[in-house]
């Protein structure tokens, strides 16, 4: 084989492999849309389930997932961003920070059911929040921290050193430099990390299983210490626990969940490209 032929073969193989990666994604999305779209209606989105969840809509589960996503944001982000600022700007390279970094990497690799059990022990029982939105949001918050911390840290580190130097040379303190130069410039990256973290949190089932999710609760939660239904768990329930469940409701529920997660990812991408275009260096 000549070198040119080898080159062509390599390109062909790589292209095929890339296509193979894309196929499952398209299939999953395609199948869910194909089967879920017909049963999707305004009533489905705005009515509570009836007749043992075999009829009616999924409004409480949608609302629950939205509430949990917001709660996750509140629980995770101040802490994650503070941690990212510390690691990127203050920590340096010491034994302690190496441990912290290792902990964050490992946190990302922990199976989500373990987060669920941790949340049960820590927030539901030890802190006595009970099975509640607070407990679920805190559990999901911890789950999102690794991805938010690492993307935020990367975004902060990618701000040119020169901006810091100039800011300091003008008599700004280190904190003012971070607050007024580094963070605004790192914001697109940080927001991307936040939204990707939220997308992950919105779709998780195991962490909310013991901490917040209700099997069947058509009433809406009245406070953050109430239980709520949530889409991923609802999907799990109607797919495995309810006999005689119409297939199209299952698919429509999956479709709604998929749309929420996909739209979060889409927003993340848009925010990033928009803010990138505005700030260039």
């Amino acid at each position: 084989m000549t070198r040119q032929q080898t080159h062509k073969l390599a390109v062909a193989v790589i292209t095929i492999v890339a296509a193979i990666v894309v196929i499952p994604i398209i299939l999953v999305i395609g199948v869910v849309f194909w089967n879920g779209l017909p049963a999707l209606s305004w009533e489905f989105l705005t009515q509570p389930p009836t007749n043992g969840m075999r009829e009616g809509g999924i409004m409480p589960a949608i609302l629950g997932t939205v509430l949990l996503t917001f709660g996750t944001a509140i629980a995770s982000f101040p802490l994650s961003i503070a941690a990212a600022i510390y690691l990127a700007e203050y920590a340096g390279d010491t034994r302690l920070t190496r441990w912290v970094r290792m902990a964050i990497v490992n946190l990302a690799g922990i199976p989500s059911i373990v987060y669920g059990l941790f949340g049960l022990g820590m927030f539901v029982l030890f802190f006595g929040f009970g099975t509640s939105i607070v407990a679920g949001a805190l559990t999901l918050g911890i789950l999102t921290m690794p991805v938010v911390i690492s993307t935020a840290e990367e975004a902060i580190l990618s701000v040119p050193q020169e901006f810091r130097t100039v800011s300091l040379s003008l008599g700004a303190t280190k904190w003012q430099t971070i607050r007024h130069q580094v963070l605004p410039n790192a914001m697109p990256g940080i927001i991307t990390g936040i939204i990707l973290g939220l997308g992950r949190a919105a779709g998780e089932t195991a962490p909310i299983l013991f901490t917040v999710a209700a099997f069947y609760l058509p009433e809406l939660p009245k406070s953050i210490f109430d239980q709520t239904m949530a889409l991923p768990y609802h999907l799990y329930v109607i797919s495995t626990q309810v006999p005689g469940m119409p297939l199209e409701i299952q698919y429509s529920t999956a479709l709604v969940l998929l749309l929420i997660v996909l739209s979060l990812t889409l927003v993340a991408t848009l925010v990033r490209t928009r803010m990138r275009r505005r700030r260039e260096w």
Partner: peptide
Amino acid sequence: VVELRQRIGMVFQRPNPFP
């Protein structure tokens, strides 16, 4: 040091305005 740097300003090699 912060106060000192306000009294002694600096202009750098490459023009480096903030974005």
